[in-house]
Amino acid sequence: MSDAPALVVENLSLAIGPAGLVDGVGFQVAPGEVMAIVGESGCGKSVTAQAIMRLLPDAIRQTGGRILLGGRDISAIPERAMRAVRGQLMSMIFQEPQAALDPLTTVGSQIAEALRQPLGRVRGEVLRMLRDVGISDPERRIDQHPFELSGGMCQRIMIASALISRPAVLIADEPTTALDVTIQAQILDLLRRLAIERQTAVVLITHDMGVVADIADRVAVMYAGRIAEAGPTAEIFAAPRHPYTALLLASIPRLSDVPKSKLAVIEGRVPSPSEYGPGCRFASRCPRADARCAAETPPLRPLGDGRLTACFHAEAMA
């Protein structure tokens, strides 16, 4: 992974009205690498993905930061130029695969849209892509509508449409959350294999530490619009250095768990953007919080092992 990064997000900040949603988020992803963004619902993962695609809802503004795609800053290029980026250099898949496909259009035509050609002209290429994402009987499936396919198959269709023009970056926003556990594992395997084969940089958004463990090379843990801790997955799982990461890890169900034993749950709730104050945003729920945590924002700082942590108590956790 010594390649130049395919995607660099620097200091991204987003706001809705006066309230900041995302505050100085940054990370990078190399070709062929899967980087997970993990955090509880509402912490700003989806808006971060939309900001990278430049598809933010009208109400949300980018207030700072840069997005470099293959070294080029795309955060201020005109919408016309951005259309040449979307689907070609950078693609996205969604949480509800069936909702992400137009119910009235055949899946083949929707995949062909990414090639900017009518299906008739690129049928062979689409069929090859369908085979590549593991759709059996592609000759029949290509002319079917989303309602004739299962959720897992629809997600494979979405992956096909996202990767057919060989983009450098794929953003996957909770791609398996709506699927059954067995299908979930198949889709994650598929993403992993395609990322390596095609050298695609994958940003995988999830709220599930189990998914991170399955697929991610590196992980960024988000809390309330900020990155709490980031680094190689193995390192972070072995020794979390942020109390929030530690609690998230303790909440993963394990096979060795006694059935019906209580999972560790994090007390309290995530503050909403209008409640963000000074200091560490996790302080109100943190077992280690002290006066300094409530007053001062802990900076995201390197700990020397390739990891970044935003906690005053990181050393004490070693």
């Binding site: 689907g87 996205m92 992400a100 496909l101 259009t105 849209e113 990414a114």
Partner: peptide, 21 residues
């Protein structure tokens, strides 16, 4: 609906997504 965001993420302009879907 999500399919509009998905069509735009594929590179369609808003106008094209409206016309096609």
């Amino acid at each position: 609906r999500d399919y509009v965001s998905a069509a735009r993420a594929r590179g369609l302009s808003l106008g094209a997504a409206v016309a096609r879907h």
